[in-house]
Amino acid sequence: MDAVMQVASSEGVHYLAGGHTLWEASAYGFNFSFTMGLTKWMVVFWGVMLFMIIAGTIGARKKALVPSGWQNFSEWTYGGLSNFFSKMIGPHLGKTFGPLLVTFFIFILLSNYSGMLPLNFSMDEGTLSLSNLQAPTSVFSVTAGFALIVFFCTHFAGFKENKLRYFKFFVSPIAFMLPFTIIDVVIHPFTLALRLFGNIHGEETVVEQLMQLSVFVNGWAPAIIEVLGMLFGLIQALIFSLLAAIYISEAAEHF
């Protein structure tokens, strides 16, 4: 029961500052709340943001005709991703939504990997202990926020490309289909958020559990899972941005 209790306690949010709940509700197993406060993953979020902005600025600052070093890497990253998404959703949509998808991919990838950095200092009964950071993408609120962005972008793209004809899609073959298409529209971003959250949170939970087991030499068993986690982090980042691209292009090409 000890391990189970550990998982349960990791569900609770530890606030670095603030933390007073303004509103709270509960439905279907979901606990909705509105809490003003600074958590550890917010710091990680800002850290990833800062890293991306600094790295990107350094990569784009030097405008050498023959790229080398960091500039070459940033151009390879940006050019490759932007081409990949443009090919997927077409050059016209790619111009509008390319930056969004590329940022999604890079940010989610770096967030997933940030969960592997053992930089989480905590004072436990007078002893300093190190553990892995909590990745921002392993928080359902964050992935739900990302999915919400995708949701709005999808319908914005659909409305922008098809104008009012876009709403005909919801009753497309017959009006009878309306409930199903609405379920579809809601389910898409929901699964998008759940998939990312479940994968990253699950992987982090597994690593945490293995850390607790004293059967293995401490640190080795989680390392094996973290190698797999590297692969999963990449695949989840790719799948999130890929599915976002597919939803956007689907909405834009109805008629």
Partner: peptide, 21 residues
């Protein structure tokens, strides 16, 4: 647990990041 404050934090910060990038 879905915290709308955290969700708003994520959305605004992501949009800022996207514009900055």
């Amino acid at each position: 647990e879905i915290d709308f404050a955290q969700m708003i934090f994520a959305i605004t910060n992501f949009i800022i990041l996207m514009i900055a990038m």
